[in-house]
């Protein structure tokens, strides 16, 4: 499906990690935001990233599709190394879907047009075909009946589901979620999480920054705890929650689970 001119190495899909971060370092001016991040994500793996505010979670996942530029280290996505070359960056972005905290839907386009924009303009697919496929994805996030409304006419939960469908329309290999539910009212969180759980069950490779610990427990293969730009602890959910090793992880968990 993905037609990329980008260079790839020759290892087969199964042994090659989907995302690989090696020795990643990033600074904002003099401020060292990401400190020596190493992370390898297999195909189909579901990772939940948590940590206190300002610890660099967003910055890390935004480096993966080059919304932020890193200064040191290597990023490889689906075999394609992230370089300065804009063609290579755009090839990677087509493989990586991203869902934002504030949805970032395009307010001047209808729900369906939001979804079809990239397939038509990036993948150069015929409008009819793109629309038909977009409708399928809207069906999957259970919002097909709103396809001709504008984003401003939908609730927050509905908008976030549209945003997920919009990313899926490019058939990405990886989905990045940056606190997808933290701008939502409690009663809407569930409808978005349900969609994410379904997506996880279908085998999508996912990196989610979220504080929804219930989601982490049921869905994640691995939970990562970050603090001050570093990965402090990384473990399967069961040991991570029941038996955290680092003191900082214990403190963080007691704070968010305590009340």
């Amino acid at each position: 499906m993905t037609t990329t001119t980008a260079s790839r190495d020759n290892t087969t899909d199964n042994e090659r990690p989907m995302i690989e971060l090696k020795g990643l370092n990033k600074w904002y001016g003099d401020f060292h935001v990401l400190r020596d991040i190493n992370l390898s994500v297999r195909k189909g793996e579901r990772i939940v990233i948590c940590g206190p505010s300002g610890s660099g979670k967003s910055t890390m996942i935004r480096c993966i599709n080059h919304l932020e530029e890193h200064q040191e280290g290597d990023i490889v996505v689906n075999g394609m190394p992230l370089t300065q070359d804009i063609k290579q960056i755009e090839a990677i972005r087509r493989n990586v879907g991203m869902v934002f905290q504030h949805f970032n839907l395009f307010p001047h386009l209808t729900v369906l047009e939001n979804c079809c924009l990239a397939p038509i303009w990036v993948q150069k697919r015929p409008r009819k075909e793109a629309e038909a496929e977009a409708m399928q994805y809207l069906e999957r996030v259970r919002i097909a009946d709103q396809a001709h409304k504008f984003p401003g006419q939908l609730s927050g939960g509905q908008q976030q589901r549209v945003a997920i469908a919009r990313s899926l329309c490019l058939s990405p290999e990886v989905m990045l979620f940056d606190e997808p539910t933290s701008a939502l009212d409690p009663e809407m969180i569930k409808e978005v999480l349900d969609v994410m759980v379904e997506l996880a069950n279908e085998g999508m490779t996912m990196l989610c920054v979220t504080h929804e610990m219930g989601f982490a427990k049921t869905v994640a293969d691995r939970v990562i705890f970050m603090d001050q730009g570093q990965i402090i602890e990384e473990n399967a959910p069961e040991p991570f929650f029941n038996n955290p090793q680092s003191e900082r992880t214990q403190l963080f968990l007691s704070q968010i689970l305590g009340h």
């Binding site: 972005r93 934002f100 970032n104 924009l117 990036v122 990313s167």
Partner: peptide
């Protein structure tokens, strides 16, 4: 900024992003 970021994350280049997302708004 989120509008540009969303467009860029979808793989739109600078000119398409401008022409389809930023300028119309």
């Amino acid at each position: 900024n989120g509008q540009t970021e969303a467009g860029v994350a979808l793989g739109l280049g600078y000119w398409r992003n401008m022409g389809l997302i930023v300028l119309p708004q």
